[in-house]
Structure formats: C-alpha cells, structure tokens
Amino acid sequence: MTLEISGLKVSIGGKEILRGVDLGLAAGRVHGLAGESGSGKTMTGLAVLGLLPHGARASGTVRLGERDLLALPAKELNRVRGGEVAMVFQDPATSLHPMLTIGRQLTEHMRHHLRLGRTEAKERAVELLGKVRIPGPAQAYGRFPHQFSGGMRQRIAIAIALACSPKVLIADEPTTALDVTVQAGVLRLLRGLCDELGLAVLLVTHDLGVMSAVADEVSVMKDGLVVESGPRGRVLREPAHAYTRSLLGSLPGAGTAEPGGPGDPGGPGAGPAPEGER
C-alpha cells in the first residue's frame, strides 16, 4: 500500500464527522470513494493532507511509507503536500487563482519543492500542459484561468497536481462541476495517467457511473464510516451491504444493479473501458 488510512476520526466542534475510516491506496490503482453528500468522503481526502477547516481535529493514522502524515510537523507536511501527495479539487473555476497565470500556478511549487530554475520549470510546465492535452501549451502558459473552458481548467488543475511527480493523487469530485460531455475526457485522462505514471489515486465521487468507469477498488461511505469495500466488480454487482444496494438502486434507470446504462454519460460507453486496457 502506498497510502494507508486507518482509524481516521475527525471532529468539528465536538461533532464526529469521521468515525474511524480505513482505506488503502496502491500504486497504479484507482480507489473510488462513494457515498452521498455529508457522508464524509471529502473530509477524508482533506484530512490526509491536513487541510481540514478551521477548528477541526483529526486522529488515527495516515501512513505514507514510514511516516504518519497526521503526526508530521508543519514543515515536513508542507514537503509532502504537492510533492508526494497532490490534490485536485471539485470546481476548477474556483480552485485556480483568477489573477495568476497558468504558468505561475504550474511552476511555483515545482520551483519550491524540486528547486528548479525558471527555464527548467517552464519547460516542464509546457510539457505537462501538452500531456493533459491543452492545445497550444506554450501560449497557454502565459494565459489566465478565465481564458479557458471548465474542462480545460480541470485538465490544468490536474497538470498542476502532477507537476512534482507525486505518488498519490487525491481527486475530490473532479468531474462533478463539469459538463457531461467533458467528464469522460477528464476521467480517461486520470485513468491514463494512473496507469502510465503508476499513481495511487483516490477518486472521491458521489457518481457511481463515474466509479464504474474508472475505479479498480470501490469503498462506500455512510455517516463517517466505510460500510463496504472491495474490487469494483464485486461491490457494484453483488453489493453485500444494504446501503450500497440502495445507492445502486437510486441510480436513474434503477432496478438493475448495473450502473452505466445507455443514458449514463459516465458509464463504460463514454468513459474508457478499463478491462480492455489491461
């Protein structure tokens, strides 16, 4: 396991948000984390990097190699953030600074973490923009976020996350704010990068269609606890827990426990077919 979360508890103002979450992320695998809003899946992602909101307390362990991220001093945690564990947020319209160029936001942490020079960082940034398929990467480098579409901004956010070659990528609802036609492209990109770079990906989503398209493992959360966890095929086809069954049953065109039917844009029809890739 590249990243191992165990017994993670988070409370805000005396209220327990997470009640002992266990999760493992492995290199080259996408771990999908599902659950309705308020179930604590986003908090799990934030807790890993110590980005919890003002006044929140976390306990338990988050193991990255030999280290426990929850016990790390601020300075060392800052080296892990962006360097070894990177994050992609839900809405690229708000997660990129509107007044800084794409180039600045792509290179600043490279220069900080990897101690790259200006020109080296720029070369690498342009290469990354090409890798996430931004047309005209050299020109895009000097532009501002508002000059790109939503899908492109999320690709840029992914490029930023990958800039320092992290081992772990936490993607918090990376396609939720995007147009359905753009979702598939971003998911395909994430899956491709995971396979190519051997990333351990935690994909937080409430969309089981998205989940069935790209995840290798699936965990289902409810009320701050993981209620079911396992390989995608088993969890989505033969759910053991009643809550998973009800989640699957609430999909449009429900009745069958098979998500990703014809009307589902995030389903296998639109997204990559993971089976075919291996």
Binding site: L49, N78, L100
Partner: peptide, 26 residues
C-alpha cells in the same frame, strides 16, 4: 476561505507565499 487558497496549501507552498501571492492579491 476560497478554494484556491486551499489549493495553494495543498501544493505545499510556504505560508508567506500563500499570504502575499494568493490572499493579499485578491
């Protein structure tokens, strides 16, 4: 409280950089 400040923290930038480059500018 903006997302991009949290994103900047997730990038591991030093606090001073976040304050001057991200927060004060806006």
């Amino acid at each position: 409280g903006q997302d991009y400040v949290r994103a900047a923290r997730a990038k591991g930038l030093p606090g001073r950089t976040i304050l001057f480059r991200y927060v004060l500018r806006s």
